[in-house]
């Protein structure tokens, strides 16, 4: 399918979501392009996870619409959508003793590959997250960080046959990881966006990580977007004071345009 290079990967128009009577998101408008890492930021309860969930039809919309490559997300064929849009869950509670390889193979579900192609793809993706040596291990015996990377390999497998630049949604992908792994996962996300034209949308808590790895930051407060743009434009002392009620020291990383906060 031919897509105009200007068609955004994800488009959110006048989106509102309520849970019970409480408005969680109010009048959100966003256009997200492929080739970028967009970080959703905000204090707890700001609505960033709900926003991410609304992209993948996990929450009912109160008003507005979400378009994936110009087409309403609800009118997409399920399997076709799964090939272009994948979600890395925050916790994957898989208790049955599948092998690591078998978990990644689940990502083949929406794809049309023969057995050999599927096997090769799974091996490649395990290589990509540096877990090829654990291929035959039982998933429940892995550490939290390893589980997270297995899930990432599964999700990347799912996106291997996308007809458009794939959309990758990451819900707090670094919460279970140690420092080195956090940077590794975010560096991978950035290289997918910059080198393979993925649209990466990531919910993060750590503002410095967001500043270093994201091209665009969307800051939410009480379900509204309060700031949206490059890290150097969004992570200003004023915004941080207003949203997080915290007085930061902001310095620029030497030689770069990324603000660092203390």
């Amino acid at each position: 399918m031919q897509t105009d290079s200007l068609t955004p990967a994800l488009e959110v128009n006048r989106l509102s979501v309520r849970i019970g009577h409480k408005p969680v998101l109010t009048d959100i408008n966003l256009k997200l392009q492929p080739g970028q890492v967009t970080a959703l930021l905000g204090p707890n309860g700001a609505g960033k996870s709900t926003l991410l969930k609304s992209f993948c039809q996990e929450v009912a919309l109160d008003a507005g619409e979400i378009k994936v490559y110009g087409k309403n997300v609800n009118s997409w064929d399920r399997q076709l959508l799964a090939k272009s849009l994948a979600v890395l869950p925050q916790h994957a509670s898989l208790t049955f003793p599948f092998k690591v390889r078998e978990v990644v193979e689940m990502g083949l579900y929406p794809l049309t590959l023969n057995q050999q192609q599927g096997k090769r793809l799974v091996d490649e993706q395990l290589e990509q997250v540096a877990l090829a040596h654990l291929k035959e291990r039982s998933y429940p015996t892995l550490s939290g960080g390893e589980k997270q990377r297995v899930q990432l390999a599964r999700v990347l497998t799912q996106l291997a046959q996308s007809e458009r630049p794939p959309i990758l949604l990451l819900d707090e992908p670094t919460s279970a990881l140690d420092l080195a792994q956090q940077h590794r996962v975010l560096a991978l996300a950035r290289s997918l966006a910059h080198e393979q034209n993925y649209a990466v949308i990531v919910v993060l808590h750590d503002l410095n990580q967001a500043s270093r790895y994201a091209d665009r930051l969307v800051v939410l407060e009480n379900g509204c977007i309060v700031s949206d743009g490059k890290p150097s434009d969004t992570l200003t002392p004023e915004t941080i004071r207003q949203v997080w009620h915290y007085d930061p020291v902001v310095v620029m990383e030497p030689g770069k345009q990324t603000p660092l906060l203390f």
């Binding site: 039809q57 996990e58 849009l85 994957a92 579900y109």
Partner: peptide, 20 residues
């Protein structure tokens, strides 16, 4: 069988894989 495997990941995850 394949769908049942995917379902073990969790209902939301199975849905994201394109399962009804």
């Amino acid at each position: 069988a394949k769908a049942l495997n995917a379902l073990l990941l969790g209902e939301a995850e199975a849905r994201h894989l394109g399962l009804d």
